[in-house]
Design a protein around this nucleic acid. Sequence first.
DNA 1: CCGAATCCTACTAGATACTG
DNA 2: CAGTATCTAGTAGGATTCGG
Lengths: 126, 126
Amino acid sequence: MSDYEHTCLIRGDGGATLRAILDQICNKWTLLIVATLDRGTLRFTDLHQQIPGISQRMLTLTLRNLERDGLVARTVYAEVPPRVEYELTPVGKSLIPPALALAGWAIEHVPHIEASRAAYQPKSGR
Amino acid sequence: MSDYEHTCLIRGDGGATLRAILDQICNKWTLLIVATLDRGTLRFTDLHQQIPGISQRMLTLTLRNLERDGLVARTVYAEVPPRVEYELTPVGKSLIPPALALAGWAIEHVPHIEASRAAYQPKSGR
DNA sequence: CCGAATCCTACTAGATACTG
DNA sequence: CAGTATCTAGTAGGATTCGG
């Protein structure tokens, strides 16, 4: 089947729906957290350590968004010290394959893109 | 095959490579432009009209980025009045399928996500 | 241990006006 | 026609501190 008939999926409502979702998963940490949680249930501190460079703030915010969107389940255990576990919901897991498709494309074409960037000479000014 | 072995694609170098690419295609207009150009070669004004809401500035900036990354070819005809045509390169076209995969996921799960958002009750404070 | 609250900075995108 | 220049507002993300 040709791409032609299907790019309407992207252009759809002017791209608004798709972009809303894309914005959500592109916000620098979401995809990384989802990919990390794909390995299994993790606690807050585990996530914080397994994702280098993330701040507590962004980890909290991103997890809240994922929870709100139903991609991640948050379980609080009433213990001392407190324990909170995060895991992917089925919907969250279903994001992995398309994300991998894009990741595969990215990895595959990074050399080309970087070469193109290096060779790029702006025609006017800069 | 399991996702497990492959999420390394996402986590790879801490997600930096993938995120660099994702940031590029998530910047609100890129995917829309690529999807529009998938229909064929277009001039600047055509693009401007076919993509509702985009400003001249953002169209120019996004096209420049795409050109720099080798996803879009820009052809200037030395005529009066000036004519500039944009078309996808093979690499640009190769972005369509994985983008469609993600778009399909988005469209499919938007109802679930919106329902989840509506039902979401923050547990603490807010 | 798991956050919430606050402050701060840099970048993005939009509006508008001007140019070769 | 196909841009460029300038200005501005909004937001994402980082650092730090405090609380249960």
